[in-house]
């Protein structure tokens, strides 16, 4: 059916997908171009071929904020929060799927309730909580709301339920306890779900803006989205500097994306199928 397509139809299809790709890629290219265009030439807008490319905007950026530290903050917070969510989530998933205890459904209901409440409902009291505990403007404050995610627990619980209990029983006969069953049988078998949760945890932390905006003041604890937004506040009309900041923010995640592209897309696709 597909091979019988006529040549014009095929060409139209290729033209369409390439135009789509151009629309997706060109803004990124434009960002890079703007960042290396001398400030004086920006008044009429940059051109695709830059006349006197310069790294001045990047120098201004380095002077304006501790950008390396901000990049490391972003990466570090994202990695730590991902690991925490995987650990806490998979353990809770095992607990709900394999252990029997009173009020299990009620407790699981509480987990689901926290899943439905959006961050903006929590922002004010969470901010006050951090202020009272004297934790505002710290790494801990950035991490606190992401130590455990009910979404992760929910997704991983489904995956654990999918692991046949016969495997557990066989291991129990061999003398394995819960910890060994969890680490050697369940965890390896729910790897796809773990990957999905990892992708969402990492992207969620990497993109997070509202919470850092509320709880962080000092540049040395800022993450990239917050740093960029403050940068824009400082250099409102200096688009070369703002775009240099954008390039610097894109590069780390682009590298992660290049390395793990297949898994990331599979992870996202995985959530939609259910």
């Amino acid at each position: 059916m597909r091979d019988s397509r006529s040549l014009p139809a095929k060409l139209a299809l290729y033209a369409a997908v390439l135009v789509g790709a151009a629309i997706m890629l060109f803004p990124f290219l434009w960002t890079v171009i703007t960042s290396i265009t001398p400030e004086g030439s920006l008044a009429d807008g940059p051109t695709v071929f830059v006349d006197n490319p310069t790294l001045n905007a990047y120098r201004t950026l380095l002077d304006a904020m501790p950008i390396w530290r901000i990049i490391l903050n972003s990466l570090g917070v994202a990695v730590v929060s991902t690991v925490l969510q995987l650990v806490t989530g998979s353990m809770a998933a095992y607990g709900f799927a394999r252990l029997h205890f009173p009020l299990k459904n009620v407790i699981f209901g509480f987990y689901l309730a926290t899943l439905m409440v959006p961050l903006q409902v929590l922002v004010v009291p969470l901010f006050i909580e951090m202020k009272t505990l004297n934790l505002q403007d710290t790494y801990f404050a950035l991490l606190a709301p992401t130590i455990a995610s009910a979404f992760g627990v929910f997704l991983l619980r489904q995956a654990v339920i999918g692991v046949p209990t016969e495997l557990d029983e066989a291991a129990t006969i061999d003398g394995a306890g819960h910890l060994r069953i969890f680490t050697t049988i369940v965890l390896p078998l729910i790897r796809p779900a773990l990957a999905t949760v990892a992708v969402f945890a990492f992207m969620g932390s990497w993109n997070s803006f509202l919470w850092p905006l509320v709880v962080i003041r000092s540049p040395e604890f800022m993450t990239l989205p917050l740093g960029l937004s403050t940068l824009q506040g400082q250099f409102t009309t200096q688009w070369d500097v703002v775009m240099a900041g954008s390039v610097v923010s894109i590069v780390p995640i682009a590298i992660v994306y290049l390395l793990a592209q297949r898994h990331i897309i599979a992870g996202v696709a995985h959530t939609g199928i259910k």
């Binding site: 997706m24 434009w30 960002t31 990497w206 803006f209 960029l228 923010s249 682009a254 990331i264 897309i265």
Partner: peptide, 14 residues
Amino acid sequence: FLPVVTSWVVVALV
């Protein structure tokens, strides 16, 4: 898919 992994703040600025 590339814009999906880019943060909202970057997308908004670009």
